[in-house]
Nucleic acid binder design. Structure first.
Lengths: 340, 340
DNA sequence: GTAATTTATGAAAACATTTGCAAAACTATT
DNA sequence: AATAGTTTTGCAAATGTTTTCATAAATTAC
């Protein structure tokens, strides 16, 4: 494509080979309709010959948008966030944006530091996960007045547009279903709530709903485990091996439920005859268990896409609608939770 | 943190409030050791007061590194790539880089377009997935002479440092194991090879190894399916329901194997008594099935980390060692493949 | 207390662009 | 062929930094 472009080519060198001024080359890219066809042709050839690639950094310092969006998730390698990020990325790529991605591992300090970095790169917008963030994070966003959305969790009164599911509702839905199937002896397996408002909202809602129905979950049936199949398998196995077993186990998410299902198999329990298990999330694959996992679908792809679209719109038009959106969770009844 | 910074603060405004010159502020950030303690203090206060955030775009046009690395994967929401990206991101974050992430969905045209975008952003380095890319992609990288690594797949003679596993070896390992367990009636379930050199290498190696041992896989036992639990479940179920069943099913990756396991359960086959199933990858969770999945571990995290470290080193020191690294696959024998 | 060093700071040029304004080159009109 | 109007282009200033070079200030040596 080029022979001796050892000297990186810039707009000036392109101008030279096209025998026009740098400004004209700039216009070629930004307002091509202002150029005479012949000039356009000439420049096009020069660009090609030089293998010139525009320098967004140089544009950015003119207040022109950087074309990047900072996306901040707790971790990338959980199905659920991976899906959100994928959908988000696809949505904004459509609009010409590229994402800067980073994960904070549920560490609020790191979240702040990463946010600063994003801002140094002059991202045009920011997508955070969850509604719960350090005060400094909010201040930073406020002071830089950069368009922001909060993904994953929904609350009507959030400070910035939130696009996600109502996790409390999800918790309520699954526990109501379990109750409606006649279960009274219910155990719970939750992810830790620290720095994770989603997990917190779910466990709160589940426990409350059960309590309201007069079902009391004893302390030793309220298990907590990190987000990991093997850990939840271990914990659930211990639970299933104890003398008194619940008839149903409500898990805070599908990954934990997966562990519980394996634990049941290991303990020789039949699903759902001996034990009912439910999840939250409806991750890819949850429908494929035998029997399928009864769960509440949190529409990850829809959330990611919607969040991306909303943010892109807010960036392009500061007057755009900045209200969030609730991507409603949906009860998915499969075979893993039976009626008593 | 600030009242009336409606006018975005730059290095000049900071200089003004600190009563020093802009150059001094610049030095405060880049060579603080050159400043007198008192001056440093003064500037620090001004920075804080103004809520100033450095502008990397402005630095970048001075040829200073942008601090970004472009990462290009086929898709983000496959466990395996998510893991690689997570590890990669962590590794380079350590060195001060932020990643620009995009996915091309196995579309070579899109890969090229995304690469151009990365280059417009003046990424300091590029990480691609796999060794197989469009000629134009290589030309672009060559002409911009930007440090590049290729992740996931390993080949000693690759054009750019490759950090990953030898997928052919992985295929050989698993089929040798299956053979050593005495299986002669073997079926295969592969991911499509188009635009995916990893999948291609595996299926080739598996078929060859089997053939060398005199085991011929009939055409209708060579199944191909997209990367999806439900699709592979469907296909495997069909296979299991036909009159003549293999004694073992070798799957091109763990996701496909997962589908096959569910299919077996659905078909009422016992694992491994009635059917042996193997995967490749050893994804998170593969060890937790009952029985655990026999597979070949491809060390995703190690690959991502290693790739990140290698690239970061190449960026920081152009003379750095640019040889790739083979992260050896490793046979993981669990219960899903029995001896006949 | 002065000269010679060393250290800390500032001025100005450079980086790769964009853009407002003005000049040049066309077209259309007479 | 001259004029008015329009379209196309170039000049120069601006953007937010870094860096080289020069100078001022502080320190040390005598």
């Amino acid at each position: 494509m080029s022979d001796k472009n050892r000297k990186k080519s810039d707009i000036i060198s392109v101008a030279k080979t096209a025998r026009v001024s740098p400004s004209t080359v700039s216009r070629y890219f930004n307002h091509p309709e202002l150029l005479k066809l012949a000039t356009r042709r000439r420049i096009e050839r020069a660009v090609r010959k030089e293998g010139y690639i525009r320098n967004r950094a140089a544009q950015t310092i003119h207040g022109i948008r950087s074309g990047t969006i900072g996306v901040l998730v707790p971790t990338i390698d959980h199905t659920i966030f991976a899906e959100v990020v994928q959908a988000f990325s696809d949505a904004v790529a459509e609009e010409g944006f590229t994402i800067l991605l980073a994960s904070h591992g549920y560490d609020q300090q790191r979240e702040y530091a990463i946010l600063r970095k994003f801002l140094e790169h002059r991202v045009d917008g920011i997508a955070l996960t969850g509604l719960d963030h350090d005060e400094a994070v909010f201040q930073l966003i406020e002071s830089q007045s950069v368009p922001t959305v909060m993904m994953w969790n929904y609350a009507a009164d959030s400070l910035y547009p939130s696009i996600g599911a109502d996790n409390e509702l999800a918790g309520r839905m699954i526990s109501q279903h379990v109750l409606s199937m006649g279960h009274r002896e219910v155990a719970c397996l939750f992810a830790p709530g620290a720095g994770n408002d989603r997990a917190k909202a779910r466990s709160r809602a589940i426990l409350n709903t059960l309590a309201d129905a007069g079902v009391d979950v004893p302390q030793d049936w309220q298990l907590t485990t990190v987000y990991s199949v093997s850990e939840s398998k271990r914990q659930a196995f211990a639970l299933f091996s104890s003398t008194k077993r619940p008839t149903a186990l409500i898990c805070g998410n599908d990954i934990l439920a997966t562990g519980a299902i394996y634990a049941a198999a290991k303990a020789g329990l039949r699903l759902p005859e001996d034990i009912s298990i439910t999840g939250i999330g409806d991750f890819k694959g949850s429908s494929e268990f035998e029997p399928g996992l009864t769960t509440v679908r949190l529409p990850a792809r829809r959330i990611g896409q919607r969040a991306g679209l909303t943010l892109a719109a807010a960036i392009k038009d500061p007057e755009a609608d900045r209200t969030g959106a609730h991507c409603a969770p949906e009860l998915v009844v499969r075979g893993s939770c039976r009626a008593i």
